[in-house]
Structure formats: C-alpha cells, structure tokens
Design a protein around this nucleic acid. Structure first.
Lengths: 303, 303
DNA sequence: TAAAAATACTCCATAGGTATTTTAT
DNA sequence: ATAAAATACCTATGGAGTATTTTTA
C-alpha cells in the first residue's frame, strides 16, 4: 500500500471511473486497473464494485477512502511545508555571541537582517567563547560569533573583523590629540581595569609581561565589571584604559573619547563566524551567514 | 516521496544510523543510503548530517521527520482499521424488510444474530417490496427480505421460506378440529378482511376470482388495518380470516387459534433474501446473509 | 453496439542485493 | 585500525505502456 496507489484510488472513487482516474493521473486505464487489483490483493477484499456505468467503493473501500484522503492530504501538506521551509527565509534562529560580538556587533547585524525579512525571528544567546563552541559542536547552536579560534576540526571559523585594542582617553585629556604614546607612559596615569577573569584583561596582562612590565605597577584607579562600565569611567575621568576599538566606536565618532596607539603594544583580536563543519545550516542560518560575510566584506559592518 | 522511504527515514532518525535502520527494516546499508539520497534529491536539500558516529537530521530533516512520523502512523492506523473491519464482524447494518418479514421473521433473526455478536448493531427498515428493491439497487441497503421476485437482473434473490396462507379460526370454533374445508363453505362464516391495497388481500381476491367466486359474496364482519388486528379479531370471535401461517405461528403453538387448509385454494408466498449482484457485501452483511441462509436451511427459522 | 474494465504482453526504471572504496575517529 | 557511509555494479521485480478481449447495458 503506497501513497501513489492510494492517490489513484481516491481519484477512482471521486471520479467513479477507472479511465477518468487514469486521465486525471496521466495514466492509462490498464495501469489504474492493475493498481486497484494490487490494493485489493493487499487487503484481500474487493474495494470497488465495477458497475457498468460507474465504479463505486464497497464498504471496505469507503473505509480505505477516508484514510487515503487523509494520507494524500498529509503528504501534500508535508511537501508544501518542505518547499516553504526551503524556499523562504523564515522562522527562528538562535545565534551565539561572546561578549564583544554580542554587545557591539550582533545587535546591529540582527537589526539589519530582520528588518528586511518579515517572518524572521533571531534570538541572541550571550555565553563565553568556550560555551558557544561547545554548543555549536553539539548542534544546539547553528552559528556563533566569538573572539577566539578553536582547534577542533569540526569547527569552521571565518574571520569577520579585526579589532585593535587601543588606549582610550577622555576628550580634553592631554593625550587626546596625540597619535601614540610609549608603553611606560601608561604607568603615570590612573588606570581602570576589568575584573580578573576577563579576556580583555588577560590579553593585556600577557602583553605587558612580554614587554617586561607588570600590572601591579599600574596606578589602578578602579576595577570595573563590564566594558560599558569602563567606558563610563573614562568619560567621567576616573582614569584611562585599554579597550576594544569596536566597543568605543560610538564615542570615538561623537568625539567624547579618543583612541591612541601604544608604541610596541599591538593587541589585536579577531572575531570569527563559527559553525559546525558537519552540520548543514538551515536556509535561515545560511542566509544569515551569507549576510554576515557580505557585511564583513563590505566593511559595512561597523562603519 | 513514498511511504516506504519515509518509514526508512524515520528509522534512520530514530536509530541515528543508516546501518541500524537497514537492520531494523531488513535492508542492506547501501539500500538505506540510496533511499536517503533519493529523498534528499527530491527535496533538493540535505536531510541528514552524517557525523562520524551518528546520523543527525538537519533542520529540514527535522521538519520532514515530524511529517514522516505522522504519515507512517496514519498508514498503520489505516492498515489496522482495514484488517479490523475485514476480520471482525462488527459495525452497523441496515436490513430492509417488507411487512411480513419485518414483523414476523426479522426480529427473531436479528435477535439471534446480535446476541451472539457484541459490537454489532442491526437496524431494520420496514418498507414495501418495491421500495426495498429500489434501495438495494441503489446500494442504500445491502440486503432486504421481501415476498416477491424482481425481474431486474441486478437483483439476486434466494428463497428462504415458503409461507402458506391458511384459514384461521379461533379455538373452539366448529372447524377447529377439521383438517380442511371447501371453498364455498367460507361464505357461511363472518369474515375479516385487510384494508384494500394490502398484498395479502389482493392475492386472496385473485385466487377467489380464479375459482369463480367474488369477495363481495363474503359475509364481511370487519376490515382491519393490520395483520395483528386481524389476529385479535379472530381471537375475539369477530370472524375468521385467511392469514400467513408465519403470522399466526405463536397462536397456533399455544392453541389459541387453529389453521386449516381450504380445498382447491393453495396460496403460497415465498420470501426471498434480496441482494444486489453488483455490490460486494460488507463482512457484516456477508455474515448476516450466511446466518439467515443457515437458519433457513435448518428450518430453525420459525420452529 | 458502445463503453468500460480486464487481460495479455512487452519494456524499462528502480529497489534491492553484494563487493568495494572512501572517510573520519 | 575500525566503523560507518558512499560508490559501483548487477539482477529482478513491477510499474507503465499498447493492443486486445471480455462484459454488460
């Protein structure tokens, strides 16, 4: 009993004729006969009484007809659901982001993507890089944007943007108009650091040590729990700090803050679109990935 | 996209493995591979991601899986519904009967048939012979029991019982112990007739005329609207009458009434199980037909 | 006689198999 | 090295056709 035979059966019942059913299904009359015989052999009973002028289902045929109609309808529903799913970019997609991408990159990207596409819902999950990579590996997340590379062969990562850590000072600060300062000059100024455990702080520490300095020598004015808090601290002259240029993009544009290089200290961080090589992205995920890559190529992402 | 492939697909998703799915469906692993490829080609997208240790559906595969499960379940439901319908004698059957069978034969038959079969409902429709034959021809009724033959070639009729019209007198009547009386003796006694239009009356009239008599010459004591009324009339000494022996079966047994032959008047009526040659009976109708024929053969029908 | 389904037959697409290779852990 | 799926290739069933016969109104 397959769907094709059941479909032909419904046509026979509806049109009350083998030959008309054949026409409607683009089949010859003998082919219809043979399928009906197959069905009758399968159930071991007559399903259709062949009267001279019309074909009428038996009681058993009526019972089967009710199921056949439902089965054919459900098949059609499945087909259209699949083509809809594959054809249209729609539905819900969850994107993972580590702190910097989640706060400074993804909101803009998600906004631009969903605005042009009704019927699309994007959810953002903020977790640390390790967690996001685990979720991508497990298949819980279709994609993430993180600031570190994974050695796992199942993880595919595409560089989206390079972010430089800059020394950030408030407007009006003596260094505001300077291009760059030397590393030892940092130790004169009150400094704001992130709480220990932050990726930003760790990479800064490593670079200081590499250059023969130590964090303890900094004149630490405050320790802040978030990038946003550090920005507020600088604005309010609590101190200066090292920050991702992406994070202060807005403030640099408006002139509230200024960024400068530190001679001999080149801290760059790259952000990667992270997917599972072994998993096929949904059409929605595929479209978003394309959109993100396109934005990165056009440098339209943060300009 | 056929049910067989969808079934294999559900097995692959459930068992997370092509080879295990093959085992469970008694197929080789390459056959499963080929079916999955067929499905993927059909939808034009990947449905299953083949990881090293397990096979996991893609988003599109998850969508299809939901439909596939429903389709397979519905198919199974149809199969069991069909085998139930064909295997068990159950459900509802409507039987047509003309007056005599409907009142004096079918209640007993229906009672005996349904008592032994839980889950069976028999409905009785009382109509005149012509109407019942029309309904059988139209397929509205699967079977009827009527007292006349049809010339329609699409009608099959099987004789169940032969019923003789007898002269019925109350117990204690002078003729009660007599074997038979001559036709002319009828005209001495008060007589009860059925209303004009009754089949019983018509055939009686015809027979009288054939023998050179006329109904008008009878001493008509009363004209009754139903066979039951005639019986009551005889019991209460209103008069005597000619009745179907089946109709007075009970009263003859209990001795309240007596039946005797009329010399030279032989009115017999046969009752026929009537079906449509072109229609396949449902299992329930078939079982009832068999039961009725068996009862007729055993003469257990009215004894 | 006409119209519908059944039968007889032929052909080829494909579901199924086995043997083997590829791939990833 | 192992386990799983893919590939290659072969076979046979059966789905589809055309031509014809049977059936019944």
């Amino acid at each position: 009993m397959d769907l094709w035979q059941l479909y032909i059966f419904t046509k026979v019942v509806e049109l009350k004729s083998f030959s008309k059913a054949g026409e409607s299904a683009h089949l010859s009359q003998p082919t219809v006969s043979s399928h009906m015989k197959d069905l009758e052999d399968h159930f071991g009973c007559r399903l259709i009484d062949r009267l001279s002028k019309e074909a009428i289902p038996t009681k058993a045929g009526e019972l089967l007809f009710r199921y056949a109609r439902r089965l054919v309808a459900l098949r059609d529903e499945a087909e259209t659901a699949m083509t809809d799913f594959l054809g249209k970019v729609q539905g819900r997609l969850t994107i993972g982001g580590s702190t910097i991408p989640a706060v400074y990159m993804l909101p803009k990207l998600i906004g631009a993507f969903t605005n042009a596409r009704p019927g699309v819902t994007l959810a953002l999950v903020v977790k640390d890089t390790g967690q996001i990579i685990e979720d991508v590996l497990a298949g819980t997340l279709e994609l993430g944007i993180v600031g570190a590379l994974s050695s796992d062969k199942k993880i595919s990562q595409k560089k989206l943007i390079e972010d430089e850590m800059c020394l950030v000072v408030p407007a009006g600060h003596p260094w505001a108009s300077v291009e760059s300062v030397s590393l030892d000059m940092l130790f004169q100024e009150p400094f704001i650091v992130r709480e220990s455990g932050s990726g930003t702080l760790r990479s800064f520490e490593r670079h200081l040590i590499d250059n023969g300095f130590c964090v303890d020598e900094l004149r630490i004015a405050a320790e802040m729990g978030s990038t946003e808090a550090v920005i507020q601290g600088i604005k309010n002259h609590v101190g200066i700090s090292i920050l991702s240029s992406i994070a202060v993009e807005e403030e640099l544009k408006s002139g509230v803050l200024c960024a400068l290089h530190i001679d001999g200290l080149d801290i760059r961080q790259e952000f990667y679109l992270t997917t599972n090589t072994q998993r096929t992205p949904s059409p929605l995920a595929g479209a978003f990935i394309e959109f993100v890559e396109e934005s990165a190529r056009n440098r339209g992402m943060f300009e």
